[in-house]
Design a protein around this nucleic acid. Structure first.
Lengths: 215, 215
DNA sequence: ATAATGTTTAACAGATTTGTTAATACACCG
DNA sequence: CGGTGTATTAACAAATCTGTTAAACATTAT
């Protein structure tokens, strides 16, 4: 059961790693329920018994995948919260950093959404950490937005709505556009990146005019 | 096979109707792949053989559900395209009407998204109609937006991006917020409606400032 | 009433799913 | 070389899924 031979002092052996890679790819794309252990094994090029040998159950594999990705997601929120830099600079870089992170992990939003919809119980143990991270970031932004409103520098918006605007706009580009393109227009990879860049600019412009525009 | 007895001159008999209602509910909530015919039968309170008797296959039932809902969706786009009413009035009522339609069919966006992701082949036959409807509405709005820009009445925005803003913002409220609430905060029905109303106001304000704000 | 037609049930069939297990191949260590 | 523990395979098992079928039941029309 416990592996102690040579090659895996520095990590997993080949089979174990291939299973994890295949599992991650499939779980991210199709979620927990639509991914079968048989499919994972086939993609990894191993017998499906191997996957029970190394990870015991489907749920255990999924938990490992969830773990890797949720850590990354939560970490991505940290960087951009400095009280000293100017307000708009902070907010713009927050939006931009978030969007850039999503470009590097384009399947993550859909994956989390799927898990929230169909397997919320698997997220139970992460709730405290998620909640804490979310509270920290919303707390920070609420505070700087309110300060800026109080100083009469931006329009009197509801901070909660503004953060919802930002988050839903950013996530939408990764949750809704790919399936839509799948049905309507197949598209090249470079073109796809360009579309996303335009989207990012538009979202920033949108939030900016919400705050600074005078009607 | 063909039913010609009394009670269904004016529609389906009870069993058939119960199956369709159960199927619609489950397909809308869980999509094609995660809905089993057994579950539908159980929810309808009939033997699962009944469902093959009336609809032959799972796919046939799904097609019927898709048909009912897609018709409604496409029809919902028609009302608000009059060239004579003022620009902002037209656009605002377009956003508002779209949002109100979604409030009456809150599960439709997720349902369509799921189908685009996992069963795009089932949408194949609807493509022409969808494409035509979409072209009509985007064409109309592109035209009035460009006119308004040319007249110097609004900012010089990319009409395509603006429509993406509107659509993704509206849909997000129904695709992303419910699962998020499922994980973070359970919420009452009236409170939920109030949140959506606030969301609608915010989206309209956001688009308005994008067009009319001077930075 | 009875034949014909429509509806429902229960049982079955074949595929697929997650997971186990017993046998075997392999590597390493004394 | 032999023995110990690990890795891998193939076969199996129980559950569930979609779909079929034959027989029982109900309804209607003649």
């Amino acid at each position: 059961m416990v592996k102690t031979n040579g090659q895996k002092t520095a990590g997993q052996n080949d089979t174990e790693r291939k299973i994890m890679e295949a599992a991650e790819e499939m779980f991210l794309r199709n979620g927990y329920n639509l991914t079968t252990t048989t499919m994972i094994a086939r993609k990894a090029g191993v017998t499906h018994a191997m996957l029970h040998y190394y990870y015991r159950t489907k749920e255990q594999i999924f938990i490992k995948v969830l773990d890797r990705n949720l850590d990354e997601l939560l970490a991505s929120f940290h960087p951009v919260m400095k009280k000293d830099t100017p307000f708009w600079e902070t907010l713009e870089s927050g939006i931009s950093t978030h969007f850039d992170f999503l470009m590097k992990h384009p399947e993550l939003p859909t994956f989390i959404l799927d898990t929230m919809r169909f397997n919320p119980e698997l997220l139970e143990s992460y709730k405290p950490r998620i909640r804490e991270t979310l509270l920290r970031i919303t707390g920070f932004h609420f505070s700087i937005i309110k300060d800026e409103i109080a100083a009469g520098k931006i329009r009197d918006v509801d901070p909660e709505q503004l953060l919802l605007d930002i988050i839903t706009l950013n996530l939408s580009a990764f949750i809704m556009l790919p399936p839509a393109r799948k049905v309507f227009t197949e598209i090249s990879d470079t073109r796809s990146r360009q579309i996303l860049e335009n989207r990012k600019k538009e979202i920033i412009a949108l939030i900016r005019s919400r705050l600074y525009g005078k009607l």
